[in-house]
Nucleic acid binder design. Structure first.
Lengths: 242, 242
DNA sequence: TAGTGGTCTAGACCACGGT
DNA sequence: CCGTGGTCTAGACCACTAG
């Protein structure tokens, strides 16, 4: 079932197939997906590969595993979970929603002697022919790394898709700081913020590629109705020093 | 070097040892740690185990790997990174800092017919004989799951350590929503917030154990000088549906 | 007892970086 | 070319859950 000649490794292919089956409702929420052994047989693969694919889904928060029982689909109501800073289009696509972007400003700016392409967008989703804007997203992208980036149409194309397909650069790691920010007029208008609100949530940080090179500085301000939800596994810190 | 009879699996033992070496400065920031093959020989283990240990360190944000080159220690200035919601003491211990807790309130409350033990604490660190409070932490713990929990002294003991050692329950997964919250008098006093600030960052959510049972509801309000930093790997979403 | 996930081994081949 | 990390295989034994 899995193709060795596909560009993606087998465990990624398997992750995609399993996720698609879950999102399509083939495996119901709260119920078990097939056991690792069954998945091995179905996809003609080995235990290690299957476990790696499932581990990614666990990390995504789509399933969880219980020893002796099985792997279960987590129940989570549809909501805009802002776990993936900057991967907005990809994220919504993986959740089968339609992403909408509106460019508010674009220009080249110089910062610390480096030239950046600045892109400010309102990001939202299409719901029943109307658009709801969920965040205002400011990107600073070094033109030394992405020459000619300003020629693309960012209303209809995913920034990260262009990074990958046109420049062969893959966003690998995000590091963002979260803080409250006072609401200004532009935020209030675009995100339709009620007068009673005084602050919104701001995420500010950097995206790095596989070589730990900073490829984007981001600032995202979220509408009050956007749930910024973090899901973490706590395994790592049960263990202090040696 | 690794002990089979230790309670922790080999890859966790190895993770701890490597982390300790990094934090002790044996491997410098920005430089490479020994290769996977070398670590295999040093600790008499196999590739899979070594890779699993390193994967955990990557997830922690302590190191990153570059194909063909090696595994490198990431440079990060000392700061209070709030990635592990609720694992405050554990986190600081793994960073070799001294955690301080002050109990502000404790009582039993009933919510939706269930009885909870409510614990409100100011959490901080000891620096040169003075204490800096960094967050106000409200926990709701179901007494049905943790009978007799109120007998412990939470100024000097880690809540999660008691969960693990006295009740055999291990916090596994956190799900929190982040949002701004208007500052009240208590926050302003304890966290020493400047008058110009109008909002702080609030993290509100639940902690689940290995069986996906909710074992704690948490609400954490952070001081303005606390960096709430999220580090994520973006691998998962480069791949849409199948 | 049978089936599940959790851990571990001992190999293999590949892609990439630097020499 | 060699050493690095990235992927994959084909087994093994264990711990836990449930009938």
């Amino acid at each position: 079932m899995l193709m060795k000649d596909d560009f993606a490794p087998l465990y990624i292919q398997l992750q995609r197939k399993l996720r698609a089956q879950i999102l399509n409702g083939e495996f119901k929420e709260g119920e078990a997906i097939p056991s690792e052994t069954e998945i091995m047989k179905t996809f003609q693969s080995t235990r290690g590969t299957v476990r790696k694919a499932i581990a990614l889904l666990v990390n995504e928060g789509l399933v969880h595993q219980v020893q002796g029982k099985g792997t279960f689909v987590l129940l989570r109501p549809l909501q805009y979970t802002m776990t993936n800073f900057g991967g907005f289009t990809d994220y919504l696509k993986s959740r089968k929603e339609v992403a909408v972007s509106k460019v508010l400003a674009q220009q080249t700016v110089t910062l610390d002697g480096k030239v950046y392409y600045q892109l400010v967008r309102a990001r939202g989703v299409k719901k029943d022919d109307s658009v709801k804007y969920l965040m205002i997203d400011t990107s600073l992208i070094p033109l030394a790394i992405f020459p000619g980036l300003d020629q693309y149409d960012f209303e209809n194309q995913s920034l990260y898709q262009i990074f990958r397909e046109k420049y062969g650069i893959d966003p690998k790691r995000a590091e963002v700081n979260l803080s409250p920010v006072k609401i200004d007029a532009q935020m209030r208008e675009i995100l339709q913020v009620d007068k009673s609100e005084v602050a919104l949530l701001k995420s500010e940080g950097s995206i790095y590629d596989q070589n730990d090179v900073e490829i984007e500085k981001i600032k995202i301000v979220c509408a009050p109705n956007v749930e910024v939800k973090i899901m973490t596994n706590l395994n790592n810190n049960a263990n202090f020093a040696e």
